[in-house]
């Protein structure tokens, strides 16, 4: 795992062995939940990006570092994290596999993982919720996620 550090209230940064800097950002995930949701304010979406990547190589330390940042964020915010993928660049399968890998490495006994795949006419939305089992509101976060899916299904464009 790489050493990471916060760069502001919502972002973290780390540097890989090949010199690529990654930014991990957290932001409000309200679009994925019912407008009257009770617990969604404690569910943040996560995005991560390489800055000026030198080249793309598989590096297990990157996913371990991001997983550690998720762990810390969930603790600090007493909340859960939403992992959002899209099919804009056709890399969504790889991203949802990353979510699956996190589940296999970190899921057992520590986190609940729940994914949704919503196939619209024109695009596919992948979203996965990562909830620390130890959180006393874990079940409520999962219910909120499921209610959000129902809301999106019924929502007008």
């Amino acid at each position: 795992m790489y050493q990471h550090y916060p760069i502001n209230d919502n972002s973290y940064q780390f540097l890989t062995d090949i010199g690529t800097t990654y930014v991990v950002e957290f932001y409000k995930a309200s679009s994925y939940f019912h407008p009257n949701c009770n617990y969604c304010s404690r569910i943040e979406a996560i995005s991560f990006y390489p800055i000026s990547p030198h080249k793309s190589i598989f590096d297990i330390n990157i996913s371990e570092t991001i997983a550690d940042i998720i762990r810390i964020r969930c603790q600090e915010k007493n909340g859960a994290v939403l992992y959002v993928c899209d099919s804009i660049d056709k890399k969504e399968i790889g991203r949802s596999k990353l979510f699956e890998r996190w589940y296999n490495i970190y899921g057992g006994g520590v986190y609940h993982f729940q994914s949704s795949i919503i196939e619209y006419q024109d695009n596919i939305s992948y979203a996965g919720l990562i909830v620390p089992i130890a959180n006393q509101d874990a079940i409520l976060f999962l219910e909120e996620f499921n209610l959000g899916i129902q809301y999106l299904i019924n929502k007008e464009i």
């Binding site: 804009i88 729940q114 994914s115 006419q121």
Partner: peptide, 27 residues
Amino acid sequence: HPVIHIKIDKPMPASIRQVLDEKKERG
């Protein structure tokens, strides 16, 4: 892990599209 998979016969809501577009732009 558990996956809910649904097909909907309508376009993606604008609010979700906006989130995804912003992710793409930032990337």
